[in-house]
Nucleic acid binder design. Structure first.
Lengths: 190, 190
DNA sequence: GTCTATAAAGAGATAGAC
DNA sequence: GTCTATCTCTTTATAGAC
């Protein structure tokens, strides 16, 4: 007899939730399948039933973020000018990163995950499209640096312990304001 | 007969150099002593002769950065106002991070290293003093977020592959300019 | 100061019982 | 779908020869 639909896939979600917490505490390389299993009170074999490898888990954890980025890029594609595409994408990224506050910081800057994403066409392509929209056509060096600093800054800031007391709404308001000012002053072509 | 002074400690430096390259490619957790030994063409035991543990290597790699931060903070301590202390420290950090371009990015945001540094009084204290100078007395939330974004942004940007073609001098010029503008526009108390 | 050898623990992953 | 048990490889780290 099949399990009710409402129950199906719950174990998978629990693995992802536990993995996310551990990844963000210890990094992906610093997290073992044993640690994930222990946190769930199950054995490694039970985890392997849900995912074929540790890489699979890491990719499944980040997937929702890339899905949202892709959605944002589809919206940006409908906009008429380079400038509006860029500013809408930057604002959208801020909201998106805060929505996935725990996830995005885990993966931005983690070399292990970087290599994993580079080796996964689906994700690499999204990253390249995002960079294309943020940089615009023929970006000069100052623009490149400003965009890089913005991206790293937002990702890094949302999980900075110094900031952790701020709730999502408050953080988003401040970050959107900073983003607007930053864009006006620091990106030459705006 | 003792080894000539000019030779002493060279093996140690070679270990640190190899470790730095591997750490920046694979993260600290993703790098094993075997990988370090292999890159040097020696055995693990030879590495263990120079350092008692992997943590020791990681701490020795970051030490020069913290030495320079401490030097910068001593300079900042001599300045009269909160604002000059902050702007001089921010500019100094930009130069310092570029000077240690390969090192600093490895460690900023790496959870393994974060825990290691938190557990080492010498380094934790420097980090706290730095945060104190950058934040100033009684920082509001917007200042906290701006400073956090600045720190993460500079660290993340210097090793962004998108930026890697820029040489140190060019990158420093752009980053110092961005820092100045950012400080004027984004930090409320300035 | 660098080696071989090895211990002891933990990693990722699989097979097969229930 | 979850377990026990196990395999194989790698890890950190030490002991002792040279």
């Amino acid at each position: 007899m099949a399990k009710p639909v409402a129950m199906r896939g719950f174990a998978r979600e629990r693995v992802l939730e536990a993995a996310l917490e551990l990844f963000s505490d210890h990094g992906v390389s610093g997290t073992s399948l044993q640690m994930i299993a222990d946190r769930l009170g199950v054995t490694k074999a039970a985890v392997y039933y849900q995912f074929h490898s540790k890489d699979d888990i890491a990719l499944a954890v980040v997937k929702p973020v890339f899905d949202d980025i892709e959605h944002l890029l589809r919206i940006a594609d409908t906009l008429p000018t380079t400038e509006t595409r860029r500013s809408v994408t930057m604002g959208g990224m801020v909201e998106l990163i805060i929505r996935h506050r725990r996830i995005s910081s885990v993966f931005y800057g983690d070399p292990t995950v970087h290599h994993l994403l580079e080796g996964t066409d689906e994700f690499r392509v999204v990253g390249e499209r995002l960079a294309g929209v943020l940089l615009g056509p023929d970006p000069d060096n100052a623009t490149r640096v400003a965009i890089s600093m913005f991206s790293a800054g937002v990702h890094g800031c949302v999980t900075d312990p110094m900031i952790s007391e701020l709730d999502d709404a408050e953080l988003q308001e401040i970050l959107l304001d900073l983003t607007k000012k930053f864009l006006e002053v620091c990106v030459p072509s705006c």
